[in-house]
Simulated assay, not measured.
Amino acid sequence: MVYVIKVGGSLYPEYIMDLYEVFRKSDEKIILINGGGELANKLREYNNKYNFTDDTNHWNAIMCMDIIGSQICDMCDDIIAVRSFDEIDEVHKNGKIPLILSYELLKKLDPLAHSWDVTSDSIACWIAHKLNAKLLILTNINGIYNGNIYSKNKRLIQDISPNELLFFDETCVDKCLPRLLLDYQVDCFILNGKYPDRIFRFLNNQFSENEFYTHIGGKLKW
């Protein structure tokens, strides 16, 4: 099995080393991509004040992803930065974990809309589609909730279709992701990266239906 794993910017830098140890022990082939974290959030703040163009926001946010990605590679010896799909197999053959710095790749192919609705979630989905891989999104909450995530009455949804997710106002994933999951027919899982033991169980086929997660796709059968 091949997994594209998107490491949310909210997990950087505090949880990176613990996740790194999990990735190193995985039985599956892993390709990493990371979010833009606080750097991209600061760009949003600037945009709210100065109203930059969509093109400028899009490419600058992706550059933020590359900056954080390069720092993750500097922290973790076995995580190797790649800038093209062709480099991935060679990194795997050397027993290392590729992390895609996506600016050059996306600048060349430009496959996604230029909008704040498109974030590293959608970029990771496009990459999973191109590599015929499953998508695992690691964020700082357990998954998709029915109701406001801050409400006492919120309920974690373990299985949801992309069609259903289209009608949610706000979730832990970007607004473009459900449409891309439909278009590309990519299977997506969302887990809380603050609990590396859960990620370990998932990647080593020790996961169960009683775990905390959200699966976006067809009905999951254990």
Rank of each mutant, 00 (worst) to 15 (best):
E87A: 07
H114D: 09
L166G: 00
N153P: 00
G95H: 05
S122Q: 05
L165A: 01
D110N: 14
T171R: 00
D86T: 11
N140F: 04
Q158P: 03
L99N: 02
F167M: 15
I144N: 04
F167L: 15
G143C: 05
H114C: 10
L135W: 09
L181G: 00
S115H: 11
A113T: 06
L182V: 11
N163F: 13
K175V: 05
K134D: 15
R155T: 08
L136A: 03
S120M: 08
S151M: 04
D121I: 07
E170S: 15
H114G: 08
P98E: 08
I100L: 12
L165C: 05
K152A: 15
L138N: 03
S115M: 06
Y145W: 04
H114P: 10
P98N: 02
V91A: 01
L156N: 00
L136M: 09
N163L: 12
P162R: 01
Y103Q: 08
I123Q: 09
N163I: 12
L166I: 05
H129T: 04
V173A: 04
Q185V: 12
I157G: 01
R83E: 13
D183A: 07
H92G: 00
I137G: 05
E104V: 04
T119E: 13
D174P: 03
Y184R: 00
I97T: 01
S161V: 02
V82E: 01
N148M: 14
K154T: 02
I127F: 14
L156K: 02
I160T: 08
K175H: 09
Y145R: 06
T119D: 11
W116F: 15
N94S: 15
I127K: 13
H129M: 01
P111A: 08
L156E: 00
L135N: 07
L135Q: 13
Y184S: 02
I144P: 04
T139I: 12
D159Q: 04
K152G: 08
E90C: 01
H129K: 13
S120G: 07
A113C: 06
S102C: 13
K96H: 02
A133L: 11
H92L: 04
D169P: 00
D169M: 06
E104W: 01
Q158M: 11
K175Q: 06
R83K: 09
I97V: 04
A124W: 02
D169V: 06
S115Y: 06
I123N: 10
S151W: 01
S102F: 07
